[in-house]
Design a protein around this nucleic acid. Structure first.
Lengths: 141, 141
DNA sequence: GTATCTGCAAAATCTTTGCACGATA
DNA sequence: TATCGTGCAAAGATTTTGCAGATAC
């Protein structure tokens, strides 16, 4: 399932697929960053200049409610989106550059389940962002 | 320092203290939840009906930039604030009720440092929210 | 063919800001 | 008293929505 495309998952869920939705789906599927809606709109406009910002908003909301996309918030007041079926990962934000690094750590995942259980809850999701600064100088020119 | 009031910390930082800022400081200091700005404005208005929403916004931003308050985002599009000097903790959100439970787990804190270090970073902060559902029925009527 | 989607523009929501007046140190 | 803060209303930024025409199934 991790190798199914967003479009395939939309069809599997019975969503009506329009040209605009396919474009948004492909744009997000091709992204390896965390675009906000304005950025998705820009990338979608490159494919179809007639697409509207409202449609992009409606589409990401639809996909999110269908569990196809995940909405992220990095604290700058704009929602960002990524493919929910990509392997789960968390984010480390380099506060000196704004760069976002993805990581996964099974120990943290397990620990979170344990903490929720201790509080009488069953974990269904989480948001984890580490804010950090580089230890060594980045390998910049 | 954890037992100093917000007002004391403002004075220590040389912030000019007005009646309005004192009111906002006391309202947040007295809160044991995570009020958004509109809610802070309501609570402050109960003390001084002439205070303006703009002043509350300016004050929480000022306090946040001074490191006195922490800005939280729970994904509903509104910023929330809490006293940054309260003992550090993370949040578990009961998605069935929206209730927010605070917790602290040293293992998770240590693990986060380790992960950042492994990626070549020094951790300076983090955001962690667990989304969960109750295991047993809540003790409701 | 009918229900749903799109584009546009207006509106809703949250937050910031210019300006004249008022308060702080 | 000089500087900085406040209140108000207007403006900004992001997101949502009403409506008429267009499209998917």
């Amino acid at each position: 399932m991790a190798d199914s495309t967003i479009i395939q998952r939309c069809e599997a869920k019975g969503l009506r697929m329009t040209d605009q939705r396919r474009i948004v789906a492909r744009v997000i599927g091709a992204a390896d960053d965390h675009p906000d809606v304005e950025e998705l709109y820009a990338r979608a406009s490159a494919v179809d200049p007639k697409i509207s910002l409202a449609t992009v908003y409606r589409t990401v909301k639809l996909f999110e409610e269908a569990g196809i996309l995940e909405r992220l918030e990095f604290g700058d007041g704009r929602a960002r989106y990524e493919d929910a079926e990509r392997d789960h990962h968390d984010h480390l934000i380099d506060v000196t550059t704004g760069q976002v690094i993805e990581f996964i750590d099974q120990e943290i995942e397990d620990l979170q389940e344990k903490i929720a259980a201790r509080l009488g809850y069953k974990l269904i999701g989480h948001r984890l962002e580490l804010l950090a600064v580089p230890v060594a100088k980045p390998s910049k020119t």
